[in-house]
Simulated assay, not measured.
Amino acid sequence: MRIPLLDLKAQYLTIKEEIDRAIFDVLDSSVFILGPQMKTLEKEIAAYCGTEEAVAVGNGTDALVLTLKAFGIGPGDEVITTPFTFFASAETIAQVGATPVFVDVDPITLNMDPALLEKKITSRTKAIIPVHIFGQMLDVERIMEIAARYDLKVIEDAAQAIGAEYQGKKAGSIGHAATFSFFPTKNLGAYGDGGMIVTNDKDLASQLRMLRFHGCKIKYYHDEIGYNSRLDEMQAAILRVKLRYLDTWNEGRREKAKVYDELLKDSPIKLPGRDPSAKPIYHLYVLRSSRRKELMEALNEAGIASAIYYPVPLHLQHAFDNLGYHEGDFPVAEKACQEALAIPCYPELSRAEQEEIIRVIEGVHRGK
């Protein structure tokens, strides 16, 4: 039995006719950039997230860069984020010339720990980028309260969390802005790169639309130096089809997570931590084990895919050597990087496949 970490082909086959029709409609229209599919997707994503505006861009990394630029963040500024996340969350801060400042994570949820946030704020701090890791939203309103006291911007990095909720509010609906990635493996994934920024600030949205198109509002008239970051019509059309299924797919992931939770509840392995106020979407189902290497090898031998998220915390990445961090500075994040392992969790996963995965996991932890 071979079980992938994510089966995109199985997903495609469930909606093949709609996807194929959407692609051929774009081909037939011969409109490929900044067309009606993208503009309609922007409206649909804004409505889904509960925001006034949505701005489609080339990818999730660009979404962060453009948002930081639109807020005027650059050299000499500091932006606070988490060391336990994908590199782009901090890379983009450096790309605009600002300095990433890290805050350790909560030992249960692995999201940024708000209790540690305020002590990291300085006169140079301009923004906070909380990350909803693995599809579990954190308490952004608490972070907004702290930000308000210091006049800081809050940019939700919701790349892994479209559809996740906290106390009934969707990811992206609370911060001053939020960014999403539509990388193919995301819960709402394109068949290539794609990204989106959502906000309730119409002026910010206007600035973002200018930045994504070479800094111009009118073609060939450039008000500032911008970027070339546009979601193409093909990807927008595909995402519009998939958006209609997103809630169903997210619920399917929650159901698979419940099976793991129930069948592994007596195992010595650590299950994903939850905030009881959050409704996660399980972009990844991440276990934690002190025997990760052995567990990964056993899964691989059984034909079961797994993956480490993340092997090195951001403060220990060589690219950030200049920041002067050392091992031990963020112990919770560092331990998570030593123990975390994602196992398959997607709607098309069968009960038999889950039971086989659990059999292998239990075999390792029972010494079999």
Score class of each variant (00 low, 15 high):
Tyr221Met: 12
Ala171Phe: 13
Glu52Gly: 15
Tyr346Gly: 00
Tyr310Asn: 11
Arg351Gln: 14
Thr122Ile: 11
Asp193Leu: 06
Met296Tyr: 06
Ser123Asp: 12
Lys119Asp: 15
Lys169Asn: 07
Glu262Phe: 15
Leu68Phe: 02
Val360Trp: 04
Ser29Asp: 09
Glu224Pro: 00
Arg254Gly: 13
Gly195Thr: 05
Ala158Pro: 11
Leu246Gly: 10
Leu66Phe: 03
Asn187Tyr: 00
Val101Arg: 14
Glu251Lys: 05
Ala98Phe: 13
Lys169Cys: 01
Ala307Phe: 02
Ala63His: 02
Ile23His: 00
Val360Arg: 00
Ser29Leu: 04
Leu211Asn: 05
Thr109Met: 12
Ile197Pro: 10
Glu78Met: 05
Ala47Phe: 05
Gly273Cys: 10
Arg254Ser: 11
Arg351Val: 14
Glu339Pro: 07
Ala148Leu: 08
Val65Pro: 05
Asp275His: 06
Ile93His: 07
Asp77Leu: 04
Ala305Lys: 13
Leu152Trp: 03
Lys265Ile: 03
Thr40Leu: 10
Ser267Asn: 06
Pro272Ser: 01
Ser277Lys: 06
Leu110Arg: 08
Leu239Ile: 01
Ala278Tyr: 02
Ala177Asn: 10
Ile304Arg: 01
Phe182Met: 02
Ser277Cys: 09
Leu231Gln: 08
Ala257Glu: 04
Glu165Asn: 12
Leu231Asp: 11
Glu339Tyr: 13
Tyr260Met: 05
Cys216His: 03
Pro83Met: 04
Ile155Tyr: 04
Met38Arg: 13
Leu8Met: 12
Leu271Glu: 10
His176Lys: 08
Gly74Tyr: 14
Met210Gly: 06
Ala178Phe: 12
Arg230Trp: 01
Leu243Arg: 09
Tyr325Val: 08
Gln317His: 13
Glu251Ser: 05
Met112Gln: 01
Pro75Gln: 13
Gly74Lys: 15
His132Lys: 03
Tyr12Leu: 15
Leu110Ser: 07
Asp25Arg: 13
Val332Cys: 11
Pro130Thr: 02
Asp62Ser: 14
Cys49Val: 15
Val55Thr: 11
Pro344Met: 01
Phe84Asn: 00
Lys170Ile: 03
Tyr227Asp: 04
Glu18Trp: 00
Pro313Ser: 10
Arg288Asp: 11
Val154Ser: 06
Asp266Cys: 05
Ile33Asn: 00
Leu341His: 03
Asn187Trp: 00
Gln160Asp: 15
Ile23Thr: 03
Tyr166Thr: 05
